[in-house]
């Protein structure tokens, strides 16, 4: 083992004067503005930023906006957000890589998410995922078909999608398809591949991944139309229905709100 001159304790050897270094970035920074982000997108960007007391709060919605344009978040998309919010690309990239919903490679026309958390998995979610994976010939976060082309599908296994009373659940572009079986999920995917748009169990008519991402950015088309749909799944209403059948009610509310407690004395 060879030791450097001197010892750490004494540090006797005078360190050589550091040479003048010029730092060269490994990756050349591309052109600052991508033609992907047109005037409309720039206008929407301003709208989104204006919603918040501080601009940086707009970063998550802006990344959804980028996905609505690109179908994923590219280096270009990262630069776009960085410029819009006066952040470094490193700061934006750190956020992008943290969140599951920001995809780092181009997505299909549709994103199919199969819940494989414990409860859904026990009721068939694992089997659904396995079957879809075989059918599409892809694994987690991989795309069957040319990304973005009609009928292309990105598959993922998802964590709990908060619809456990309707397990097993599958989402397409974050719209719920409840109470799935391997057969129904296979039919769903086949329909998507034929460029059909099966209606979700709850929610608005199916669009595509990019349109869903635009809505997640808070840019809604015709919201008065898209909010329509059932109030709740029939399973969700079972408690309400049972109560009605049995005549069970909460203690009745007074006709007028009762007097509020007096103002507490200042300490």
């Amino acid at each position: 083992m060879t030791l450097p001159e001197g010892t750490p304790e004494t540090n006797s050897a005078a360190p050589a004067a550091p040479q003048e270094l010029t730092w060269k970035p490994v990756v050349e920074e591309g052109p600052p503005a991508s033609p992907m982000f047109d005037e409309l997108t720039r206008q929407r960007t301003k709208e989104i930023i204006a919603r918040y007391p501080q601009p940086r709060s707009a970063l998550l919605p802006l990344l959804h906006l980028v996905q609505s344009v690109e179908g994923f978040v590219s280096q270009d998309g990262i630069r776009y957000c960085a410029e819009a919010l006066e952040l470094s690309t490193a700061e934006v990239a750190a956020v992008v890589t943290f969140y599951t919903m920001y995809k780092r490679s181009p997505c299909g026309q549709h994103l199919v998410s199969v819940c494989t958390n414990t409860l859904c998995a026990a009721l068939g979610g694992d089997e659904i995922y396995r079957r879809l994976s075989e059918k599409l010939g892809v694994g987690h976060e991989e795309t069957a078909g040319e990304p973005g082309s009609p009928g292309s599908i990105t598959l993922e296994h998802a964590e709990c999608l908060a619809a456990c009373d309707l397990a097993p659940v599958v989402q397409v572009n974050y719209e719920y398809f409840d109470n799935q079986t391997t057969e129904s999920a296979t039919e769903l995917v086949e329909a998507l591949q034929r460029d059909e748009k099966p209606h979700p169990t709850r929610g608005a008519p199916l669009t595509d991944f990019r349109t869903a991402e635009l809505e997640l950015a808070g840019i809604h088309g015709d919201l008065e139309q898209s909010v329509e749909g059932p109030s709740a799944a029939k399973e969700t209403l079972r408690g309400v229905q049972l109560a009605a059948e049995c005549g069970w009610v909460a203690p009745s509310l007074p006709a007028e709100p009762p007097a509020l407690p007096p103002l507490p004395e200042k300490k």
Binding site: S231, A232, T236, L237, G239, V240, Q241, L242, A243, A244, C246, G247, W248, V249, A250, P251
Partner: peptide, 13 residues
């Protein structure tokens, strides 16, 4: 009170 007391859920249906 009754076994079920719909307050939050009373409008759901």
């Amino acid at each position: 009170p009754d076994p079920l007391t719909p307050v939050l859920t009373r409008r759901w249906g």
